[in-house]
Write a protein that binds this DNA or RNA. Sequence first.
DNA 1: TTGAAAGCGATACCAA
DNA 2: TTGGTATCGCTTTCAA
Lengths: 337, 337
Amino acid sequence: MNIGEIAKRAGVSRSTVSYALSGKRSVSEETRRKIQRVIDELGYRPNASARALANGRTSTIGLVFPPAGNHYTGMQLDFIGSVVEAAAAFDYDVLLSPSGVDSDRSFQRLLGERRVDGAILMEIRLEDDRAAHLAELDFPAVAIGRTAHPERGWWVGLDHTALTAACVHHLADLGHRRIAFVNRPEQLLRTGYESAHRGLDGFTKAAAERGLTVRTYCCGDDAASGQACLARILHDDPATTALVTLNEAALGGLYRGLAQAGRHVPRDFSVTGVVAGRWAETVTPQLTAADVPAEELGRLAVDLLVERLDHPDAPPRHHLLTPPISLRASTGPCTAS
Amino acid sequence: MNIGEIAKRAGVSRSTVSYALSGKRSVSEETRRKIQRVIDELGYRPNASARALANGRTSTIGLVFPPAGNHYTGMQLDFIGSVVEAAAAFDYDVLLSPSGVDSDRSFQRLLGERRVDGAILMEIRLEDDRAAHLAELDFPAVAIGRTAHPERGWWVGLDHTALTAACVHHLADLGHRRIAFVNRPEQLLRTGYESAHRGLDGFTKAAAERGLTVRTYCCGDDAASGQACLARILHDDPATTALVTLNEAALGGLYRGLAQAGRHVPRDFSVTGVVAGRWAETVTPQLTAADVPAEELGRLAVDLLVERLDHPDAPPRHHLLTPPISLRASTGPCTAS
DNA sequence: TTGAAAGCGATACCAA
DNA sequence: TTGGTATCGCTTTCAA
């Protein structure tokens, strides 16, 4: 059933039905009611493909995120959920594209075949070929995270530099002098993953500023890796009394490693980092951390994208968030001699 | 740039370009190369909306999952990821629809506007209006989970009845006599959420069979609720020595409650349940559990849906999985007097 | 082996 | 306030 059918049954032209639906032209109250009755009767809904073809808009946004070579993190889940819901509020649907790089088939489809009106890019890298490609095409996109050239683009992100620095200062204030940094997997760092880089940066600089002794580690995105990593930390420097981590998925493993080594948190060892709130609360003791506001990030990203779609030549906008550290139960004064 | 442009530059007709692309009609090697050269030069890709309009297929499947009234679980994350990747392997894109019930706008759009060729339904209820509606329309869909009338449909699911029963038998074999069941939130149970019902069922029957003393609880999908629930369990019956849970998100809280009550796992108290493997490994001690094979479920669901799309009147198929219990470290012999 | 042209189902311009 | 019709970009039938 199509718009012609409706028109016929309502005894009007197809254009009138179209206008009655879109409201882009006034339609007499009487014909509008006539049309609406037929529509309700038949349960008619305009075909999305036809509409997209005719007016060039798909009412769909693409959410581009890398395939789980290893694992997705809980934060990503929260983020995806909030994007989908925020988009739904604007009557946009969300098309998922598991693409880590420009050349992924799915990414090519998204853009080349014009499947979406705009895109949100997750897991941004400092030099991101997806973002570069999009910018070159002037394709409406919002990145989650900042590339190395943030001024030119639309994005929402976390100030990882400030966040890890805040963690360091928190620990230093508690008297810790020898601390470790547990980063995301090495492969992500190597490929220029933004949060891994900026997080490491903030950690390193703040530690230098406070004159701390540090060691930094990369760690796989799973509990087993976390456990192994913790073992290495204590092996490399048994006098370590605290750590900062960006690696949410490894957190449970880090805790386990600590327990295994007989270090009590927070009495003998403090743990902190950058983790989504609800995941920080699943470990015991609950993690003192900068809570990643995944929902807010998702919402803001959608807001920005919708704005950009509505105003094609609005100047670039962005949001840099720096959530405060939530004091929970995993850090305490350094008790080492 | 469109197919006409390509045709003009290659000096052929639009239909020839179309056929060269689809291979549905033979094209001389020479013209094919000529066309391909132009396509490569211009980076042409056929417009998805136009193609969908013309041939009635969107090459998109819908993934319908309820909005996170409270929270998404890790298992859902793994599942979404595997669906997206499995679909990508068939060159299908995935459209997310945050719909819990038939009447959700996004669900209506999906179907009514023909945005997708088929759908995968998550979080199925025993009486599921979404599934019913889809079946009535004979719309290609695959459910994750069984409704009360599983024989009529296409689905992949877990045998929650058998799974929780296996957990009970495991505990009974270890000598536990007083055990608790920690279910998903009451609201989900009330609305007929399949796994909550069948899981409860399997638990109850197996416990009766073994002559155990049981109590069953509903619990919110978060750590705080888990902790509170555990407190209630021990308050209601301090002699409880084990629990079975379906509630992954509450797991960390259950553990914390146990620690707080001074019960050591697994010496004083055994914990088991149905949880995705990688989440079972984040807690300490690692959870002995029936590992939800989320990736496999996602892959199978896509396989089934693609099969159904390719063979519109193939008879219904389904997969009922019963993963074994993975012995880890959270259960042990009952040491109660 | 190829081309011409009729759809697919909307939108929106031009007339009336 | 309405109708007629060209148009969006592709697929596919019918002819040559």
